[in-house]
Amino acid sequence: MRDVVFKTEGVTKVYDTGTQKVHALAGVDLELFTGELVVLLGPSGSGKSTLLNILGGLDHATDGRVWFRDQELTTMNDRGLTRYRRDHVGFVFQFYNLVPSLTAWENVQLVTDVARNPMPPEEALKEVGLGARMDHFPAEMSGGEQQRVAIARAIAKRPEILLCDEPTGALDSKTGVQVLEALQRINETTGTTTVVITHNAAIRQMAHRVIWFQDGKIRLVEENDTQLAPSEIEW
């Protein structure tokens, strides 16, 4: 029996633009397990990011229930969600979202300042292979390096879950591989539950499970018996 990290029941999300209602999520039931690397696949607007935001405590579901272990996220207020994000969740975004006025080291420090049991920023940066570039500002780094700083920032708090929204979306294939390798290594060595959203179907080969989205619903869930290393994937 695998340990359940996330469990959702009939989660819906409706965006009201005033003139029309958009159903971003139309009833999602899902379980995610400790230590697995899950890839969410699907076309734009299929609801992947919305689900990720709800799992990460960035957004509220319109209806349905979400549990993180035995805590029900859907009943938490803003303060509770902030606490939850601070203690348990690491995020990686498509556009890195580094603070341009802070160096790599300081961007990681942003997290270690508020986390309960963080690793030192330099350790997190070494983990992603950036031990030599800690004093550089974002503008002085390549896109791949910036994304790896973002990953270092996400793992520095030793999160139980790592949520990655299109982490390679803005990168070329070579740097994309470096970023994915970092994610896979962290997943393997720390057992952090990792959720990766992507457009790139090839990436699914590195996951334990692949969840296909369409029109706000789960279309298909696949399990991979073997996982490929990112360098072995054909882009």
Binding site: R86, F91, V114
Partner: peptide, 14 residues
């Protein structure tokens, strides 16, 4: 704007 979102995502309170 996006930095504000980021800080909140990282667990900084409102």
């Amino acid at each position: 704007r996006s930095e504000i979102g980021l800080l909140k995502a990282l667990g900084y309170s409102n």
